[in-house]
């Protein structure tokens, strides 16, 4: 028991010392970070928080304005908007975080390899990556929808590819700079193999700004997910998604504005919080200069 507490305290003190904690130092960071923690908890514990089943229809009580027990009203099928917004957080966050994670892993691998090996390989990789950047996100999403049909998988791949170039370029720029450092020469001089140099020196020193940019990209990913959902290319009914909810609300925009306002507010608040927190993180870690490299 004591051991468990000891470990717990260890984990807490590790959290306190982590760079993430530094972003909480300012009041802006506290508010934005607090909101994000709350959002995360809400998404995780959605089944226990929501008063109604997000898919339960009640046509008799459609388009009801906000009132007890439907705090944020109901949509045209009489589904509880509050429950759907909360479940929507689950969809939005998980889609965006998964997509960005894939993008970071792929981007870091490509960028690190390009920066380390250089030459023709670097040129080929960077050209292809830059090409993906020049395509509009929606177009990429459409290609995936055409190949594997609409749904969250397409959305995830579309977001992942949309952000691939950013992570690749940022990683490559860092690696190219770090390669000039004396400690890399020193490690080569000790007999370090390329694997050792890359995994033990270059990537650990390059990872912080990539993670921070990744955190900011999660916000953009949420917007992109909502956009695709709005056009019916993302989450399919009855999966609740903020974008799809807004889309279905457009028909009754003047009759029941709450159907579109609350998911819209959820998107806006989340994106603002992510960006504010990301800025605080950049300030706390003092990495603004390193971000400019890409």
């Amino acid at each position: 028991m004591i051991n468990i507490i000891g470990k717990k305290i260890g984990a807490i003190s590790w959290l306190r010392r982590s760079p993430l904690a530094k972003a909480f130092n300012s009041w802006l960071g506290k508010i934005a970070g607090g909101f994000l923690v709350l959002l995360l908890l809400t998404a995780i514990f959605a089944p226990w928080i929501t008063p109604f089943d997000y898919a339960a229809q009640n046509l008799m009580n459609g388009n009801a304005p906000p009132a007890w027990p439907h705090l944020l009203g109901t949509d045209q099928f009489g589904r509880d908007v509050f429950s759907r917004v909360i479940y929507g957080a689950r969809t939005s966050l998980s889609v965006s975080v998964t997509a960005i994670s894939i993008s970071i892993v792929a981007g870091m691998t490509l960028g690190a390899a390009a920066g380390y090996f250089g030459g023709i390989f670097e040129r080929v990789v960077m050209t292809i990556v830059d090409l993906t950047w020049s395509f509009p996100d929606i177009l990429i999403a459409l290609i995936f929808v055409a190949i594997i049909g609409p749904g969250l998988t397409s959305t995830i791949f579309a977001i992942a590819i949309a952000y691939l170039a950013q992570f690749t370029r940022l990683t490559r720029a860092q690696i190219v700079r770090l390669k000039q450092e004396t400690f890399i020469e020193a490690s080569i001089n000790l007999g370090g193999k390329p694997r050792h140099i890359l995994l033990r020196h270059l990537i650990p020193n390059a990872i912080t700004p990539v993670i921070v940019i990744g955190m900011l990209a999660v916000g953009d990913g949420i917007v992109l997910e909502a956009t695709l959902g709005f056009f019916g290319l993302g989450a399919q009914p009855p999966t609740p998604s903020w974008g799809a909810m807004m889309s279905s609300g457009t028909a009754q925009l003047f009759l029941s504005p709450w159907v579109i306002i609350f998911p819209g507010m959820a998107v806006a608040a989340t994106v603002i919080a992510v960006n504010l927190f990301g800025d605080e993180l950049i300030r706390a870690l003092d990495i603004r200069d390193r971000l400019k490299e890409a």
Partner: peptide, 22 residues
């Protein structure tokens, strides 16, 4: 060459950047 490096080593000019900061 990597194996041989154990027998021939170097001390660098700038001690500030010769050790990985992490």
């Amino acid at each position: 060459m990597r194996d041989l490096r154990a027998h021939m080593q170097m001390v660098f000019q700038d001690p500030y950047s010769a050790i990985d900061p992490r």
